[in-house]
Design a protein around this nucleic acid. Structure first.
Length: 344
DNA sequence: CCCGGATCCTGCTGGC
DNA sequence: TGCCAGCAGGATCCGG
């Protein structure tokens, strides 16, 4: 499932392969995939055709490509005006953004084969779950299509106005890694209420610890609340809590600051490790822009490992129902709160 | 404002 | 073999 490391992997691929390209056409195969766009598929197309994809930016699990007036000519001078709109993407639980037709380049290493899934077929090959296709011109990589593929359709694309950061208007100055975007003062409107993520260089960690401890909920709920801290999903939440040896049901307002800090640090750590391995995938639902899977699932300590031995103490991993999904814990390493001592 | 549960959707899996 | 319930889950909506 795409969480922060997977989305960042995609962002990096888009940055390298489609930024600078101009959208020459848009085909929406499934209207539901642009349901968050105000005006529907026709408006979505109208607002993209002729515009240049100017950057690839991410916050948490949201990803966007700011739009600029289209010109296939390489700009000699940076545009004076900031883009007023962006193509916004959320991958949901099965969304993929696949770049097709790009030429391999020496710098891209083994990820440079960009036609995964289309070997032997024509350039117009369509994935069975293709929902939206952007036709591109002028990409330095040679990319011809940007395909939004999404089996379970929780993901979506839209064009959104860029607005000031609602939760954090006093944005620190720039000088940050290019492309990350935390130095950009404007966000797509649906992202304005999303908190900074744990890999954001401008994250206020002390403020986040205080904010978590002010809440009256369970620690895992706080971790999954994208208005508190973004980018963490069910998988990395369980992995982070296991590393920090904190049970998911512990009440936030009774946790020590040092424990909250350790949980957040573990989450950042596990996501950095996953990112270094190209993200997590259990099947082919998550892939990078080239259609290749990450390998982090081989490193998971508890998620999806019910009844298998804890990698730290050997006790069988326990699965609990949680928020209409699952939580995986080591019953020995992660002591449950007294109020919730589980049966058995 | 804060919290938590229901809901959207598709395809695969497992039980009978 | 076939059918259907259950499951996966991020963000949003809505009721308390």
């Amino acid at each position: 499932m795409p969480e922060l490391p997977e989305v960042e992997t995609v962002r990096d691929g888009l940055d390298r392969l489609v930024v600078g390209a101009v959208v020459s056409d848009v085909v929406v195969f499934r209207e539901y995939s642009v349901r968050r766009h105000d005006g529907g598929p026709d408006s979505f197309r109208d607002q993209l055709v002729g515009r240049r994809l100017d950057a690839a930016v991410r916050r948490g699990k949201f990803l966007w490509l700011p739009l600029a007036p289209g010109s296939t000519r390489l700009p000699l001078v940076e545009p004076v005006e900031a883009p007023a709109a962006a193509l916004l993407a959320h991958l949901g639980m099965s969304g993929q953004l696949l770049v097709r037709g790009a030429r391999p380049s020496g710098e891209q290493g083994p990820s440079a084969v960009l036609d995964a899934g289309s070997a032997g077929s024509s350039d117009d090959w369509r994935h069975p779950h293709l929902r939206v296709r952007l036709h591109l011109t002028g990409a330095a990589s040679g990319a011809r299509y940007l395909d939004f593929v999404d089996q379970r359709t929780f993901g979506h694309l839209s064009v959104q106005d860029l607005v000031p950061d609602g939760a954090d208007p006093a944005t620190p100055p720039s000088g940050l890694p290019a492309g990350h975007g935390s130095d950009l003062p404007l966000l797509p409107e649906p992202v304005a209420h999303i908190a900074r993520d744990l890999l954001d260089p401008n994250l206020d960690l002390d403020g986040l610890v205080r904010r978590v401890r002010r809440r009256r909920t369970q620690i895992k709920r706080a971790l999954l609340d994208q208005t508190v801290v973004s980018g963490v999903g069910n998988i990395y939440a369980d992995e982070a809590l296991w590393r920090a040896q904190v049970h998911w049901a512990r009440p936030t307002d009774k946790l020590r600051a040092t424990d909250v800090r350790r949980v957040l640090g573990s989450a950042a750590e596990v996501m950095r490790e996953a990112l270094a391995q190209g993200g997590t995938s259990f099947d082919d639902l998550y892939v990078n822009v080239n259609g290749q899977s990450g390998y982090f699932d081989r490193s998971l300590a508890v998620y999806g490992r019910e009844n298998e031995p804890c990698r730290r103490c050997g006790a069988p991993v326990r699965r609990d129902a949680f928020m209409n999904r699952s939580s995986f814990t080591c019953p020995v390493c992660q002591r449950p709160p007294r109020a919730l001592t589980p049966p058995r």
